[in-house]
Design a protein around this nucleic acid. Sequence first.
RNA 1: GAUCACGUAGCUCAAAUGGAUAGAGCAACUGCCUUCUAAGCAGUAGGUUACAGGUUCGAAUCCUGUCGUGAUCACCA
Length: 591
Amino acid sequence: MKNDFMKNCMNNNDNFQSIEEITKKSIHFLYKTKSCPELCFQYTKKEHPGDLTLILFSLSKKLKKPTEKIGNDIGKYVKNQLGEFVEFSIIKGFLNFTFKDRYYIYLLKRMLNTNFYNFKLPSKKIMVEYSSPNTNKPLHLGHVRNCLIGSSISKILKMVGHEIIRIQMINDRGIHICKSMVAWKKYGKGETPDNTKMKGDHFVGKYYNLFYKIYREDIYKNSSKKDQISILRDARNLLKKWESGDLTTVNIWKKMNQWVYNGFKETYKKLGINFDEIEYESNIYQIGKKIIKEGLEKGIFFQEKDGSIWIDLVKEGFDQKLLLRSDQTSVYITQDIGTAVERFRKYNIDQLIYIVGKEQDYHFQILFRILKRLGYKWVNKLSHLSYEMVCLPSGKMKSREGNVVDADSLILEMYSIAKKNFLKKSPKFEKKSAEIIGLGAMKYYFLKIDPKKKIIFYPEKSIDFKGKTGTYIQYTYSRIRSLERNFLNFCLLLNYHWDNIKFNIYEKNMIKILQRYPLILKKSAMELNPSLIANYVYEVSKTFNLLYQNKKLIDPFNLIHSNICMNIIHITGNILKSGMNLLGIEMIDRM
RNA sequence: GAUCACGUAGCUCAAAUGGAUAGAGCAACUGCCUUCUAAGCAGUAGGUUACAGGUUCGAAUCCUGUCGUGAUCACCA
């Protein structure tokens, strides 16, 4: 029965065109323009009559005719074609279309077609880099934001038809890990994550902090210069040993990194973060060197007397930038040059998106310039998605000073609050559900905010479960599932002719907001901005709760209308779930 | 100091890229569970969109300047 219904819907769609499409045609027909000017549609504001508005001012300019005339012409043309479906009125320069019930039926049927969700852009192969942690300490709130944005954007891009490679670069080598290593060697007394029952990344982080404690005490005691601090000297020596391949050093390094990886793995798993590829800095930090040397031979770079290699970007408004140290070791940007070249060579990608905090804006600008100078044609396929940082009320988080909120303790905190709330509401507690709710609240909290805006995190206030939250949306969804279960108990699924249905205002609003979903998806994919989906999904929930509160949705005495409602409800549930999944948030059937 | 971002209700955020009288949530106060899940709904209150100019039919949005906040400007990553 359902299949017939679907077929019916699809047929309906074939010979029907939306207001937007017909408006486009009308301009072509009425004014014989070669190309249709950009049409400025807008959802009609509450205070005016209508549902969809065409703004006429810019059209009036382009067609050199008064707004009133254009509005009337287009309005009449559309009305002529869609008389049963739409009315129009003109206020100043605004042409307002009012949908009739049959237009809502058309919209509803269109949404019941599975094609409605399969919204696709021309497919590209896109690599997304995110997370990219150092291996000397646990992940903190900054990483959480980075991971959630990166993971969500990957899902969104995949949803609109791209092939995605999620990649993380692990900064496993360098002075930072040597600092943890030194402290552990000196004061570790054979402690390991196992025998101290600590999570590996926290364990290594503990020694990183210990390093700085000793370092600061040294400065305080001796008021000596940085270079003379013995523990720092030890760390540098360790780095040299590592670079020369000293076996015991390399073994300690391997061991400590492995502890950290085990810790990360656990955190990623809890957060639901995944990668398709992992790069280790230690494997690839040499690649860039070769490219720099070739660039030097070609005269793109220059060499100082001490042997260091530089690029001069003064003409482009930047400084001179070091590419290779005088001892011929590579710096951060050297390695990024190498990895970019490698990635394009190895994966044959059409686009590379770096999701990295905005403190590195300058770095990426320079990186892209250098690659351009080197003559790589794919430079315009690189982009840096820069997001603002997560701060505490006291200011920037600084792991050296210990004022960080780490990911693991935040997750635990969310679990425990969710559990507490759960027990208050529901007699039988389900651990899994509480975890989904806690995690959902946290993810939503991070993702609803535009990436380019700063987040100030108040630990003592904690993340909300009421109002505009992930929980609210999950709650709405579980209400929907509950309605669906009840519906099957009371009503039969019937295939009626819907042509004479009358919708109330709540149903109309619901249908209107639901059919915007593909547009929102497209926009968030184009702008690489998950917050658009987060805010949209909230609006959908809010509109649904309004409908729920004002209308008896399941009514055994009005089967036809209950069936219509059930279709609206079903689409709402699908969109909520789909949208939230794009944010990496799971939904549950009962709360 | 230079460069770049951001300043919207007491607080946290929106506003379909220049459209009509700038919207939500939290906190506060007032109502609604004998009725499909009250983690919900309705109402009250809260604004010179930091400030001053400019662009035009029209600006929170674009341009200029001022102020404020933050980031970056390493032979660190």
